[in-house]
Nucleic acid binder design. Sequence first.
DNA 1: TTGACATGAAACCAAAAGGTTTTATATGAT
DNA 2: ATCATATAAAACCTTTTGGTTTCATGTCAA
Lengths: 108, 108
Amino acid sequence: MGVSARKHDVFQAIADPTRREVLRLLAEKERPISEISAHFPISRTAISKHLHILSEAELVKGKKAGRERIYHLQPEPLTELKQWLSYYEQFWNNKLQKLKYIVEEENE
Amino acid sequence: MGVSARKHDVFQAIADPTRREVLRLLAEKERPISEISAHFPISRTAISKHLHILSEAELVKGKKAGRERIYHLQPEPLTELKQWLSYYEQFWNNKLQKLKYIVEEENE
DNA sequence: TTGACATGAAACCAAAAGGTTTTATATGAT
DNA sequence: ATCATATAAAACCTTTTGGTTTCATGTCAA
């Protein structure tokens, strides 16, 4: 029942462009749902669902304040993504080295 | 009609755990479809579809060799993911700094 | 206390995702 | 030539996703 038991993980959460844009907005500053949804052509309800998915992935958190719910970014789960990525960096680093090597050969 | 016109982008491609495992297998070495699908409980056809999606995102490429098609990893599109991530690193770095600051205060 | 506002929740819907089975095609081996 | 192998392609199915509309609830303001 650890982190992996969540219904929506980080990889799924960031797969949707609308959710990535929501994260970008919340990176600027915390905002209530209605302010967030004002940036999109879709309904407030749809945005609310996206926020639920981001919440499950723990990428955002909402605090109730009066009749509003203010969401803020929680970037920590992105470290999982970073770790995943770091495994693959060795490969593109190798490619760049090969490319550099070829260029150097051609200049001689 | 640029890169963004692809039906499946990197974010979507890596959202599925099966596809991430396929990438991991291809990171070890290039493999034909049947060898890849042998690692999974689902059908070869299903794996083939996943490979198509990974191909669209240009994360893998298949070369026909005899009656086989050998797939290999193409990690370059992951740089897009890395760039996207780098924007958010400032936030968790800040958090770590704040945490460190608190700890230092408590030690005085 | 009455209304406007902000959100939550439920019911519903179409399209996409992830899978299967079936059929076809190309290639290698005998 | 024939047969087994490796993949491709198509048809089909179920569940999930991303959206809508409608209705309910809690809170602020007058």
